[in-house]
């Protein structure tokens, strides 16, 4: 197998290598070999896709020279002025910037680019993330709300906004944003589970607890209805039903809550058992989440 085939098959097994450190490291380790191979000069869609992934994972693993090379070749092929390459360049500069003033400098450059072309969404998003990492969530939120007024069909922006509102403790705003995401992707089970989590947090931090917990149960149920083995959904379901039962089961039928609790326990136990045994088809779970599920189950067993 050539290096290109190896990397492509790796990417098809791990479609989002940036999600966990280990997969990005795996990918980044192949970067120098790939860049010096003859495959690297091929001009196909998958090669350029690979370049982008390698660039991001090399940056993540501090392999700046490989990242530089990827960026350079992308720029040579598509032009340094295209918005996507510009965003990647910005990302590279942000990652290699050594001090806060350097980051401020990049921010100024983004501002300039946006004033030249207000529709440059990739740069706009970079600017928002940079504002966030500079510790100015208020400005980031303002920029995001501006972004979603002209692009209300951008699910990524809505979910980012939801996350930022949540960090500020503004739960109902966060719920609003997640609902917008659902309007764009109606079957996003992770968003349903997220809504459940928010409803649960809201119920615990003031507000009507019985009602909030009941809502949370429904959202978690919906998420596992859409995705049968969604660990977070079952985990949340188990957690909330525990809470409701401990509070005396107000707001919902007791048999239903008990039934759901039992079902969630069973499913979680199965996930934990199969994932820790490393069975075929059960390897995709995040080890940390499996561990958390195990700890949730432990006192019960």
């Amino acid at each position: 197998m050539t290096i290109l085939q190896t990397l492509m098959s790796y990417l098809s097994l791990h479609p989002q290598p940036l999600k966990t450190p280990s997969t990005s490291l795996q990918l980044a380790q192949h970067a120098p070999t790939f860049l010096s191979s003859s495959d690297a000069s091929r001009d196909t869609q998958e090669v350029w896709f690979l370049y982008e992934q390698l660039l991001l994972s090399s940056l993540r693993c501090e392999d700046d020279s490989s990242a530089r090379l990827c960026l350079q070749r992308l720029g040579d092929r598509f032009g340094v002025k295209t918005s996507r390459v510009r965003a990647l360049t910005g990302l590279y500069d942000e990652a290699t910037a050594s001090s806060k003033p350097a980051l401020e400098e990049i921010l100024k450059r983004y501002n300039k680019l946006i004033s030249e072309d207000p529709t440059n969404t990739p740069i706009e998003k970079r600017r928002i993330t940079l504002l966030q990492s500079l510790g100015r969530p208020d400005e980031a939120i303002t920029a995001l709300t501006k972004l979603v007024t002209h692009s209300p069909t951008d699910a990524e922006a809505w979910s980012h906004l939801a996350e930022m509102y949540k960090d500020q403790g503004l739960y109902s705003q966060s719920v609003f944003c997640l609902e917008e995401v659902l309007l764009i992707h109606p079957n996003a089970y992770n968003i349903h589970a997220r809504l459940g989590e928010l409803a649960y947090i809201q119920a615990l931090t003031g507000g009507n607890e019985a009602e909030g917990c009941a809502d949370a149960v429904r959202y978690f149920c919906r998420s596992v209805e859409l995705c049968e083995w969604y660990l977070r959904g079952w985990y949340g379901l188990r957690l909330v039903t525990d809470r409701i039962l401990a509070q005396g089961g107000k707001g919902m039928k007791k048999e239903t809550v008990e039934g759901l609790n039992l079902k969630a326990t069973k499913r979680l136990a199965e996930i934990v058992r199969r994932a820790t045994a490393g069975e075929e088809g059960w390897k995709g779970f995040d080890p940390a989440e499996v561990q958390a599920a195990k700890e949730l189950l432990e006192p019960a067993s």
Partner: peptide, 14 residues
């Protein structure tokens, strides 16, 4: 609302 009655659906079908 699709979520209406989802608890019973989950209990019944999953």
């Amino acid at each position: 609302w699709v979520i209406e009655g989802v608890e019973d659906r989950v209990l019944q079908f999953l």
